[in-house]
Design a protein around this nucleic acid. Structure first.
Length: 278
DNA sequence: AATGACCGCAACCGCTTCTTC
DNA sequence: AGAAGAAGCGGTTGCGGTCAT
């Protein structure tokens, strides 16, 4: 038995969004906020599934989305982040303000991957000339290797050769503002966990351009590299470089420490609330 | 001008991860 | 602990536009 679909497909609109649908969705979210995607379409008067609404909002209607061509700087950053993180588009997008994961994924697949392919072509055996049939609309999935799937295969091959270890994500609260979770605290717990620490400046220059955004940390690095990097982009904390690490162990230790800090933070906030009420 | 190949991007699908109970 | 539902993510496809012949 397969998993039940996220929503009933009967009677739902599919395909491109109309201006009217966009307006309905935007107005509803402006009034009620994001979330509860499953129930949103009905409440907003849309004949779309929740997933479709979420995608439309996240990729096109959300405020502050940057449209237009990817700049050379962004191009360079995507290349570098991809070499570090692989196909983790949402993480990469988190480093490019105003850009969406879908946009970056498309950009990679249509522009940047080709650069790598061109480099590789010299060493690959020659491929037969492309012959693409049009109007093969009811193609069965995974039964034939199209030029697109071949393209994807090449990308996957690239991915595996470039990114040896998979990044390990460490969740932490992006809304942390308390001083309790400041740089000193993180550095302090990091030293306990056996990390070496480098300055933000050094991190920025060596790893990835700094930006204020997502509240996640992750390990990344290359097997050939003597360092593994822990990036925590929330609050003031910057980047810690563990040496001689078993990445997994350090991740667990730090995650536990984060949880302890979060718990402490929660307690502190509750105490503050109680004091205010009194 | 007609046709087919290719390109780019919006959208969909299915799987994974997270959250809640 | 684990089941179920919601949300997120990445791979893939459909289709309109453009280019080449």
């Amino acid at each position: 038995m397969g998993r039940a679909p996220c929503c009933s497909k009967v009677g739902l609109h599919r395909g491109p969004w109309t201006p009217r649908e966009d307006t309905l969705l935007s107005k509803y979210i402006e009034a009620h906020g994001e979330g509860h995607w499953k129930y949103l379409p009905k409440k907003a008067g849309l004949l779309r599934c929740g997933k479709s609404c979420r995608l439309r909002w996240m990729n096109y209607l959300r405020p502050n989305i940057k449209r237009g061509n990817i700049t050379p700087d962004e191009d360079d950053l995507i290349m570098r982040l991809h070499s570090l993180l692989g196909n983790r588009w949402s993480l990469i997008a988190g480093r490019l303000p105003g850009r969406t994961d879908n946009e970056i994924k498309n950009y990679w697949n249509t522009h940047l991957s080709r650069k790598l392919q061109d480099k590789k072509k010299l060493s690959l055996p020659p491929q037969p000339p492309k012959k693409k049939k049009r109007n093969d609309k009811k193609k069965k999935k995974n039964t034939t290797i199209t030029s697109r799937t071949r393209q994807t295969q090449v990308i996957m091959e690239e991915k595996h050769t470039i990114h040896a270890p998979k990044a390990i994500r460490i969740t932490c609260n992006p809304n942390i503002t308390s001083s309790i979770f400041d740089t000193r605290s993180v550095y302090s717990c990091a030293s306990h966990a056996g990390f070496d620490i480098i300055s933000t400046e050094e991190a920025v220059n060596n790893i990835i351009p700094w930006s204020e955004d997502v509240g996640v940390g992750y390990f990344a690095g290359d097997d050939d590299d003597e360092h593994h990097y822990l990036v925590n982009s929330s609050s003031e904390t910057s980047l810690l470089v563990p040496t001689n690490c078993t990445t997994q162990d350090n991740a667990q230790v730090l995650e536990r420490l984060y949880q302890e800090y979060l718990q402490l933070l929660k307690t502190e906030e509750e105490e503050n609330k109680q004091q205010q009420q009194q």
